[in-house]
Design a protein around this nucleic acid. Structure first.
Lengths: 227, 227
DNA sequence: TTTGGAATAATTGTCGACAATCTGACGAGG
DNA sequence: CCTCGTCAGATTGTCGACAATTATTCCAAA
């Protein structure tokens, strides 16, 4: 299904649909990193006026997928090792915090659901070994649930709506579906156990390591790609 | 000088000036917390069309000063003890990180300037004891410089452009100019020393305590205000 | 050939008007 | 008397056009 066709099913408002469509297009590289965003061109492409488009662009800037300069237009961000490190420094800190808070605030039922989620992923992973399902959707689900479990609205909004699209962009564009899958699974399991034991400090530490390992993985790929 | 008159001196773009003006109006309570934002009314008040106004509102939402619901309008946020705690949880974590990074990345010259800044504040504080200068502008300067010293662009943008206006809103609206001034000064001094010694861990710890104390201070005021 | 600058083209910012949606009042029916 | 549906008013979302700014091209002079 092409990106344009996604616009056919009505969501809520035109700029909402635009946002989703362009987010996906940028994350998946359909709109190349570093390329200039032409408002007239995008407006024609998505069959809308520039008003909702500009609103969508404002929100894209919010999640760091584009960079705007007044009176000079917008560009899709570029992926660099330096930005990756900066991004993951933040992510480590914030998801570590999310773990500590989740250990305090998550209901037993939520923890149970998280365990079931992980078991589902294990089955799926065994069935279609090597496919990138787990890395993309599954890992995302896992992190999202813990973030939501923190019950901190600012933290939730920040990670889910402002930072995670960039994280996904790095992963998708560098084709991150390698051998870290099974190892990531074990790390996830350990984090859940810590949260279930209400050991926020340990969950924090494990999450930081988990994210640090993920960063290293991407870093290697990114550096080899630029050789 | 009234808020409207600020619009007379041209900044860069109309929505930029609008943003600054409305930010100030909300932070200082001129537009009451919880009140509904009427686009036509604000457009008339600031003598602009709704296009730049809506752009400004989008950015206000970004720094959590207003909350928008599609097809239902925007409201100024309300100040609650729960949100205050959520906000300061984030702030502690992020400024702690900023301290660790600043201890790594700040140039000697930047540290020296930070020291001079603090000395200036000490003089000012002695001269006009009791005035709220230090708490508002001085404290802000101090924190901003450390954040900038982290050299992490995402962290800088997040704290300076998205979170700090809310922090200021709590402080201004609750009239935070009390007896914490001199104590805060000592805490600042200790943090600088830690950064100068390149002891990121200590600076982190001290900053977390500093912010925690500040939060407690506001919390007390906020609870007594709601009695 | 290269450089400087002016004219031109293209893009962004802003405007006023129209369409879609929500809010609140009013009245009919239970 | 209360509930529900309808209608008017107001508000938000979207559109196409104009103004202001920036980028580009082209020509002239050194």
């Amino acid at each position: 299904m092409s990106v344009e066709q996604l616009l056919l099913r009505p969501s809520v408002t035109a700029s909402d649909r635009l946002l989703l469509a362009i987010q996906q297009a940028i994350v998946e590289g359909e709109i190349a990193p570093g390329s200039k965003i032409s408002e007239p061109e995008l407006a024609r492409r998505f069959q809308v006026s520039r008003a909702p488009l500009r609103e969508a662009l404002a929100r894209l800037e919010r999640c760091h997928l584009i960079e705007r300069v007044p009176n000079a237009g917008a560009r899709v961000v570029t992926l660099t090792p330096e930005k990756l490190i900066s991004l993951y420094q933040l992510r480590e800190e914030l998801e570590g915090l999310a773990c500590r808070l989740a250990a305090q605030h998550m209901a037993e039922s939520e923890i149970e659901e998280l365990r079931e989620l992980l078991d589902d992923h294990l089955k799926t992973q065994r069935v279609r070994e090597g496919e990138s399902y787990y890395q993309e959707a599954g890992d995302l689900d896992f992190h999202y649930r813990i973030i939501l479990g923190s019950k901190n609205p600012y933290l939730i909004n920040l990670l889910c709506n402002e930072l995670y699209f960039l994280v996904r962009m790095y992963r998708v564009q560098l084709g991150m579906n390698g051998p870290r899958v099974s190892k990531a699974f074990d790390e996830h399991k350990a984090i859940i156990n810590a949260i279930a034991n209400r050991d926020g400090e340990l969950a924090d530490l494990l999450m930081r390591r988990h994210i640090g390992a993920s960063r290293l993985n991407i870093q290697i790929q990114l550096n080899s790609e630029r050789n």
